[in-house]
Design a protein around this nucleic acid. Structure first.
Lengths: 339, 339
DNA sequence: TGTTAGCACTCGAGAGGGTCGACTGCTAAA
DNA sequence: TTTAGCAGTCGACCCTCTCGAGTGCTAACA
């Protein structure tokens, strides 16, 4: 569907104004605030055409126009200009995303919070598209009689948890740590996950520990690979004054498995922008913008923003671009690590 | 203010019905659902008297009655019967509050989630009324070139965090760990917090590490001692269909410092029930039920529930009682620890 | 042929008015 | 002291009317 230059300008104007005011946009609004070179009557004719094409709709006969999902989609695909962040905004982002963290979950959570604070929408950060992390070390540390701290160090950071399930002696722990590290060093997490049949004779003693580590890695893969932040921010938008819709979108943000499905798709283009949700997944009344981040040239996870359909896509895309860069420059995702 | 037996029964009925239906209660409701031994006219007379006393109010002249904050307060102070949980409910609680965790933050978070899930309101768990935790061990573990895991083990569990700030050698770390453990073993966290002047000659080398541990302990005291769970549950109550009120209460649950103030008060009675919020702190449109939990006979923290004024106080109190018990029976809070 | 002024038309928002009925307060009898 | 009876109140709901923002159409204009 080809659009004339003028139609593009007018559609852009309507979308921009919609994003700003959350109200239907009249021909006069477009004329006075965006395109004074065309008279309201001309604009009206174009609006009619754009409505016919499915990009705009009227809440009722004598009201202004509102973009349809298709209208927004056209906007983000072809019309939108991505605002580059000002130096100050970029610096703020950088500062807030302090990269000193060395725990994968913490890094994800921090990235999510940074995005949410910068965009003022809810955000989702996902890790695990191809599970890029490689085991470097497995530590077992006795904390007290019944508690052992298990630390799995990977090249992408630390996964850890303490437990009371392991009651071995310190000597045993040291021994087990050595064997396990030797066994798994250099392997990807999902390789570890599927190595139940690897219990050798020498490892049989440490079956309890082995099982725990499998459990730890599996569990984190299933549950802990999605960080969500800023759900409450949705409260501020007029489209979510309707508590019913609010609940719908908030519920989505609580369903880690559904989020995983959305976030693990790797789009062909840099950004996937699902305007109005995803029919197949039963997601409505919101838009989802996602992009992937890489380590060693391969996508290993994704960043996303969830907000009203009337989202400031230009700003969101720009912020996601920045945070992707910050994340990829993080000591653990960078290709040329100084080790 | 003394109430006749009959007035007590009627006020109880009005409050119970209000909690159930969230609608004004008529004399007929009370008569038909609670007290058929009195005629509606009699009940009307009593309702008038109770209104005069300030326990009830009418949204408008010809409507039923709604309890005032004072009405609820009277109810919780003198009239309410605390439902004992059924065996099954108690078992469910116990099961969901699995005590295998050995990290203070995790335990608090788990307790908060247990309470929120059981009550269907938002919950807050606070630690630090008198800071009961005593240092047992300080571990410094090299994870990679730039990353050291710092673990502070106390008798109440683990406080830990990893950092890239410490770049000492493994030998140094081992040494520092020994010195620090010796120095702080048996001390309370707040004693550690105020020991900046303790840098001895032998410790001077490890100033970086020392500073980090102080930072770690101080920070957790300031920020990480409040666990909140179930904010979203508030969405389900009719009083929060008004997004403005919802925001107000959700904001409260985000302000950790304000929550700390509320949660660190040790009430004289077992339960503090603030009906309608707290004027001094600017908290309105919600009720807060709190109780303290103990370790070694001393209160060290508190559990709380935040919900609409029309809260099922009886159920909440009962659940809090149960969780307090579960928490105090946790391996780390128990007096007779098997160490 | 594309653009624009003029104008009749549409429809939601908001105000005003009327009915209904739930529930009250009062009165007077039991 | 309790209760039946009843008039009175007021919100909820519905209908109607008015107002005006914004449209679509037509005819004139560049």
């Amino acid at each position: 569907m080809k659009l004339s230059e003028r139609k593009k300008k007018i559609l852009s104007a309507v979308v921009d104004e919609s994003i700003k005011t959350a109200e239907p946009v009249s021909s006069n609004d477009v004329h006075s605030k965006y395109l004074s070179e065309f008279s309201p009557a001309t604009i009206r004719n174009e609006l009619m055409a754009l409505e016919e094409m499915g990009f705009l709709s009227q809440p009722h006969t004598s009201s202004g126009r509102v973009p349809t999902a298709e209208g927004y989609q056209m906007y983000v695909n072809e019309l939108m200009d991505i605002k580059k962040l000002s130096k100050k905004e970029a610096d703020n982002l950088k500062e807030s995303f302090d990269t000193k963290l060395f725990n994968l979950d913490d890094v994800l959570q921090k990235a999510a919070k940074t995005i949410s604070d910068a965009t003022n929408y809810a955000s989702v950060v996902y890790y695990g598209i191809t599970g890029g992390a490689v085991v470097e070390n497995i530590l077992l540390i006795k904390l007290s009689q019944n508690n052992t701290l298990v630390v799995v160090v990977t090249d992408l950071g630390v996964i850890k948890e303490e437990t009371s399930a392991i009651t071995s002696t310190e000597d045993d722990l040291r021994q087990a740590s050595k064997i396990l590290t030797k066994m798994f060093k250099g392997k990807k997490l999902e390789e570890v996950e599927h190595s139940e049949n690897l219990i050798t004779k020498e490892l049989a003693r440490y079956k309890q520990i082995f099982d725990y580590i499998l459990h730890l890695i599996t569990e984190r893969d299933e549950h802990n690979s999605v960080a969500v932040s800023g759900k409450d921010k949705l409260l501020n938008y007029p489209e979510y004054q309707d508590v019913y819709k609010l609940k719908h979108t908030m519920n989505l943000l609580d369903q880690k498995d559904k989020l995983s499905m959305v976030m693990s798709e790797v789009p062909e283009v840099e950004f996937s922008i699902k305007v109005g949700g995803d029919e197949n997944l039963g997601i409505t009344d919101c838009s989802i913008v996602t992009t992937t981040y890489k380590s060693r040239g391969k996508p290993i996870g994704s960043l996303g923003v969830v907000g009203p359909v009337r989202m400031d896509y230009g700003k969101v895309v720009s912020i996601l671009k920045n945070v992707t860069k910050l994340l990829e420059d993080n000591q653990f995702f960078k290709e040329d690590k100084d080790e």
